[in-house]
Design a protein around this nucleic acid. Structure first.
Lengths: 208, 208
DNA sequence: TATTTAATTAATCAATTGATCAAATAAATG
DNA sequence: CATTTATTTGATCAATTGATTAATTAAATA
């Protein structure tokens, strides 16, 4: 086959092909984890040769880092306005679930792939998601403490971390949720689920 | 080297060598995940040849299944008495944290290893831990609902799942917890952490 | 037009790793 | 003592896979 070889006329072609690879990575992450995605699959999904991954991104890891950078920027900029809103924590919970619902990367674990092994992907992931979240969410909680809406004896960082665990785990650990706990995708995408998390976080389970 | 070859005099030798392999698997899981442990490492840790793993357990997966079966039996039998105790949920939270503290397998993720890929290990893991937990914990919650201590509008299964997420995630996702959220191993092993989870679960964060 | 440069392919490399197997060893058996 | 059986070793196999490279193509450049 000799289609599309050689130097392209349009300089935008290069950017478009990089984007296509990033999208291929994004799509495949909906079904399998980083390590289970081969550069051959990525190339096939994007309609080019596997060598293009090294050519454009240096390595398979480089490609996924580029994807994560896109996603992180996107996500955190959508959270910016919350600090000035009426019910920031409610807003945060609903926005996070909305994001997780739409994201194609949470169906499978990234964590073990990413932080279980030393390497640039793990380092970058840590900065792009958990560290940014730690810089963001405890501030919201402190703000609510100062307004007298949240217990002052609470450690804002610990509470933020626990909330993230309740929010994220059902999406990360999808197979456990579905097959062991019988909680369907429909369940976690429902407004009832968002309410459930919100109520658990705000009021706990106690009968009063 | 010709040490310990041939048919052993003591028939208990076989059981002892199997145990040694299981212990090797347990030890190595403290540092790395299933897929990152090679049969060569396992063999070396146990002081024998890698072929013994297939010989005794059929495969690398078979060895880890044997380990998980041991651990599951052990853990769930330690929970049995809770249903008849005064504060079963408090007891459950403290016992679970106690177990996680002592367990060497939670330092690294098992989930992606185990449920991210089809295979016998994933199937067995699902039955041995999450499914057993789903059969156990919601019952405790329902019991407390009937005693009027927990809100009746709560879905016991959903609440149980959310509690497990708060409890487990800090141990599964150790690197995220430590490096991104600055929550140390000492923190999650402290009585304050157990209290934090208990308070969050029972009362939530609301100021009253 | 001739040369250089960028982009792409197809093939190959090199490392890892789970599994297997023949040979070796020694206890059990008759 | 001779044979059989269980156990263990050391070496090898076979598959996967990320990366690299030489060759090829065509646009850009002079």
């Amino acid at each position: 086959m000799k289609a599309n070889r050689g130097r392209p006329s349009d300089p935008g072609v290069q950017q478009e092909r990089k984007t296509r690879l990033i999208e291929a990575a994004h799509n495949l992450l909906a079904e399998k984890s980083f390590r289970n995605i081969t550069i051959r699959e990525l190339a096939s999904e994007a309609g080019m040769q596997s060598a293009m991954i090294s050519y454009y991104f240096g390595s398979k890891e480089g490609l996924f880092i580029a994807l994560l950078e896109d996603l992180s920027t996107q996500h955190f900029s959508s959270l910016e306005h919350l600090a000035d809103s009426d019910e920031p924590l409610k807003g945060f919970i609903f926005a996070t679930l909305e994001y997780l619902r739409g994201s194609r990367i949470m169906g499978r674990f990234l964590i073990d792939d990413v932080v279980g092994q030393p390497g640039p992907l793990g380092e970058r992931f840590m900065e792009l998601f958990p560290k940014r979240m730690k810089a963001f969410l405890p501030k919201l909680i402190t703000q609510e403490q100062n307004l007298g809406r949240i217990r002052k004896d609470l450690n804002p960082r610990w509470a933020a971390f626990s909330l993230m665990n309740m929010l994220l785990m059902p999406f990360f650990a999808e197979p456990v949720r579905e097959r062991a706990w019988d909680i369907s995708k429909q369940d976690v995408n429902s407004p009832q689920w968002a309410d459930h998390i919100y109520q658990m976080f705000i009021q706990g389970v106690e009968e009063k």
